[in-house]
Write a protein that binds this DNA or RNA. Structure first.
Lengths: 337, 337
DNA sequence: GTGAAAGCGCTAACAT
DNA sequence: ATGTTAGCGCTTTCAC
């Protein structure tokens, strides 16, 4: 099929390419009649503007990047839904990049963006990321970055977060109120701000109720399920094992249930569990799982909207942080005995 | 920050831009010494080629599109992992588009690609898609398309599928061998080839064992969980309800477990269940769920590799279909009573 | 209201 | 081995 570009339209209509271009962009300089003709011809010949030519000219690609640790995770996949919803109404396109929790991968990905392939970046940092040099450098190229969920707090960048501290607090308090006295916390890497905050909230709740938060009861999990399994098993095999668990990662749900089965621990009688999770199947687990459910879709959507506003050069208070609350959904895994 | 392009490098080194360009692309025309100097200067000034300029020039964007019905689905998110793995080693970028199972959305998305934004397309069609006009048109623009999982069979396009017919057969036979006599099938839209094949395989198994596949026991599910719940409930409230179920969609797992709980049906004693699913938590359900597990990662990876080969103009037998088998993973939901 | 011309950054054909 | 030139398709002054 012959490629139809502005020049082709111009020839067909005996007009100049600049007239065509202006007509297509609905310029006030062009008469209504001509616009009409141009639009009709464009439709008839199925003209589609070449994305690269306009990008090269105008220095904007209408592409945004989404950098996340992982797609196979209900939080991130829901967040992508939100991002996509916000972005498509403005005609932007979404590029997905996975870090697999590697800082090296994250830096490498962001280096690619110097080429101008994307106009802005939405990201959730990897668990290894503690330094923001790679992000700063990108911003120095006038490519705005917005964090969602996992942020590098010291950077002066817009962030969309949930109330991690409060959620950790709420989860722990809920367990305490339902009778738990020895409550464990399963975290991710301590360097990750969200994990840190959740744990701080948890510790606050314990303290408030005069309970001890012992080293032994605070685990930092790994990326390897087998290792996590051993860690959790050891935790629950202590002489006086915990009677409640706050798990700050969705991936740990499976692990905890498996260990309980293996050790013949009854939930919620022997041990109660609250998990940070967006899993739809929480309801059908036995017992059904009490969760801290994050507003994944809204967080993605809001982050995207914030980024788009920056791209449209609307005045955005730099470094604003939007907090969207999570929700404690009480089910049977924390039922009072 | 000043933007450093080829011209800037040329000035800095007192060379012409074409020499720079050639040196960067390691052309045989350029002396080793010059290459050296250029590379060093490029590194020092942090030169990054402008992606649009090369795309405009070379008519290739190094972008590929992935069109899927949904991300929040373990099959598709794992497939994306596979795609990403295959694509990043070749320096390609991944654009994600969601159809939300809408044919209109799917067509609209593909229209966008006339702009040359992507070099090729990987797709799983929506459940509404029966006509391939939009895909044909895109291919007419020399943008290759590869299907994975959900294909439009009549199109002469490379496809990466799993053995749906055989899996449906295997699932049903497994139920029969474990004592089921009245086996229901929960399908998606009948227009979807994969659903159709799975059901055909199921019917074949029943026939082989002299069992009836009644209309009442074959349900076509919807996109609305509430509706599905009612359909499944009705199915299981029949006078002589099924004693086995083959569910061809991951989303139905939750529904079936919920209905069983509500109706106080014991699994596997009263009814046994096999589900097409990649859910990691299948193991911790009560009872643990027997699944047909699809090779999601491999399918994504293979499809991407097929596409890349076409983009590199390697000779590809057009319209080849690669079949990667699924696996029956036997757990407790089908245990013999 | 319309058109001519320059240029975004890069590359490839064609000199030298 | 290096340089000159033209052009990918589009937009934007600036002229008419």
């Amino acid at each position: 099929m012959k490629k139809v570009n502005i020049k082709a339209l111009a020839q067909e209509l005996n007009l100049s390419s600049s007239t065509i271009s202006k007509a297509l962009r609905d310029s006030y300089e062009i008469s209504a009649a001509t616009k009409q003709r141009v639009l009709e011809m464009a439709a008839r010949l199925q003209y589609t503007p070449n994305a690269y030519a306009s990008s090269l000219r105008g220095k904007k690609s209408k592409n945004i990047a989404v950098i996340i640790p992982e797609v196979a995770d209900s939080f991130f996949s829901l967040a992508i839904n939100g991002i996509e919803a916000a972005v498509k109404v403005k005609g932007y396109h979404v590029l997905i990049y996975l870090t697999h929790e590697s800082f090296a991968a994250e830096s490498a990905i962001m280096k690619e963006f110097y080429s101008g392939r994307v106009d802005g970046v939405l990201m959730s940092v990897s668990r290894e990321t503690t330094d923001g040099q790679h992000i700063r450098q990108l911003m120095a190229q006038d490519i705005p970055v917005v964090f969602f969920d996992r942020a590098l707090e010291e950077l002066p960048v817009a962030k969309v977060l949930t109330d991690d501290y409060h959620s950790g607090y709420t989860a722990a308090r809920h367990l305490i109120q339902n009778g738990c006295r020895r409550i464990a916390f399963l975290g991710m890497s301590e360097t990750l701000s969200i994990s840190h905050h959740r744990r701080a909230g948890y510790q606050h709740a314990l303290q408030e109720y005069g309970l001890a938060a012992t080293r032994k009861n605070m685990i930092s999990c790994t990326a390897d399920p087998a290792v996590n399994y051993k860690l959790v098993k050891k935790l629950l095999q202590q002489a006086t094992p915990p009677d409640g668990i706050v798990a700050s990662m969705e991936k740990l749900t499976t692990t905890v249930y498996q260990v309980c089965q293996a050790l013949q621990l009854r939930m919620p009688a022997d041990v109660k569990l609250v998990c940070f999770s967006n899993l739809e199947i929480a309801t059908i687990l036995q017992p059904s799982l009490t969760t801290i459910t994050q507003p994944a879709f809204e967080m993605g959507k809001t982050a995207a909207e914030l980024l788009l506003r920056q791209l449209e050069k609307k005045p955005v208070r730099q470094a604003e942080a939007v907090i969207i609350p999570s929700e404690l959904v009480i089910r049977d895994s924390t039922k009072k005995s």
